[in-house]
Amino acid sequence: MTRDSKIFLIAAVAVLLAGLLAPHVLKNPFYFFAGYVILQYVVIATGWNILGGYAGYINFGAAGFFGAGAYASAFLFNTFGIPLLGGLVAACLIGALLGVLMGYLTLRIQGVYFAIATLGLVIILETIIHNIPALGGARGIVVYGPPPPAWAAGPSQYMFFLMLLIAVASVSLARWMQISWVGRGLRAVRASENAAECSGVPTLRLKLLACAASGAVLAAAGAPYPFYTSFVEPVTVFSLLIGLNAIAMPLIGGTRTWLGPVIGALLMASTQQIATITISSELNILFVGIVLIAFVALAPNGILGLVARRSRETPR
């Protein structure tokens, strides 16, 4: 294990411990209620970045995977009484499957076409859910989750810790994919797909792997959602705002490394939480739009790109 990996492991354990101890310090459950959403976006941004950042394939359909995960866990719980952890595993499998399916359909086409096709995935999934009575159609489904276990301080605190676990697991997966042979291959794909193919990089297999991992993480972000809100309906889980944030957050943080989406999500999601409470949800969307345009036009490599440029310019 390298020195960096040791630091990462210690940091991950420290974050989890802090999450476990936090309810004893912060008594107001609202912090955990809001924190859940922020962590959810850390997972979404991280999942999106595996395919979008490392391989350079832009997925507009993050909400499709998120919604599929949410519906999977809600359906399994309501129909078969399968608890959330089982639903989480099922959501990951469905997300990975959807990812591979999407990959097979669309990876032969590149760039813009891929992006448009992924936008289609959301609409098709939303239409399907609307038309299946067993999944509640347009009315949605109500989920009465079990009470939280005794060690948790309350339902919000429990859901918060669960999302923290998912976030740490997702970030670890994204970090592993970045520093291993997978990440090297995907970087080659991103730089030049033809050159990579010619040098013997198994591009199609790597891209399918990235699709599967990205899909699984995005669906995992959605799986606890029905238990968090006690309710799922197509319009919210397939919302454009999820797809937008999934792209905006990594782009603002920086797409080259696992840290970029984490920074972007923490910054953007907390600002949005504050903006939604204190101002209005319309201005919140306006804010995301303007920040997005500014970053794309002025700092295309995100915050981490700015930091890297600054440290290159000042000789040490």
Partner: peptide
Amino acid sequence: VLQSLTLFFGLSLVIEI
């Protein structure tokens, strides 16, 4: 592609709001 798509995505949100 990523950046120009994102730019126009942001632009459409700004127009809507």
